[in-house]
Amino acid sequence: MVSRALGRGGLMAILVAYTAFAGFPFLWVGTMSLRTTTEIAYNHYGWPSPAHWAKFRAAWIDSAFNTYFTNSATVVIGSVAVITLVGAAAAHCLARYRFRGNRLVYFILFSSIILPPQIVLIAVYQTLVEYNLYDTLWGLGLVYVSLQLPLTIYLLEGFFARIPQDLFDAAKVDGYGDFEIFFRLVLPVGMPAIATTVILNFILLWNEFLFAVVLISDDELRTLPVGIQRFMGDHFQDIGMIATGVMISVLPVIVVYAFFSEKLIQGMTAGAVK
């Protein structure tokens, strides 16, 4: 009995400790984002009183956060849309049609999921320079599409292949052609899987750093992750201001997470749960 209670208590202690470990850094930055650097220097772990909400406005105005935001949103939304459409079409084709080379294409795409992207980094850079796409959001978006396309096709193919063939036959008998079937049957029926890949791609690309830092040099075109790094450089000692910037960049994701946590978790773990 005693050992059971002890075990229970130990378990609870672990849970509390880990929750603090996982959550503390974020909450700490949250408090710092509302305090001035002077206040922080006096006591790094104090509660914000008074809370300096004005810092958020200052950070937003003072730096190019709105530019970074717009750039990130443009490039990420654009490439996620393209990835979804192109990926779904390819996945449908691989899942539903029999043709010579079907499995070969699948195998090649599947293998390229494992390739570390920095292998192609230099050549991608050279290629974009040659096509005058270096330092443009178009170029970055194109690279983003190629980064996430294989995984997207892989995930969607698995789902689409499980749609019963009878549905397709029924649609054919009902008079629908290949493309109508794709748009009016596959996309709606595959929506849960598509939503999952959209979330996964969105988060991964929203946080992408390596290609963003290599392929963009114009400050006007920077995406959020690189922007924050810049911001950090500009406000080297101004911890309070950096904390505010960090919070600004994190809030959208957290807000979305607050509403769609289950779907988000599902999307993020889609590649691993089998």
Binding site: Y18, A22, F26, I203, N207, P225, V250, V253, M268
Partner: peptide, 18 residues
């Protein structure tokens, strides 16, 4: 479950700064 998952959502840049 939801709380422990949160760090995954943060970009490496943010994680690094913090």
């Amino acid at each position: 479950r939801i709380a422990w998952f949160t760090p995954v959502l943060l970009s490496y840049v943010v994680v690094a700064i913090v």
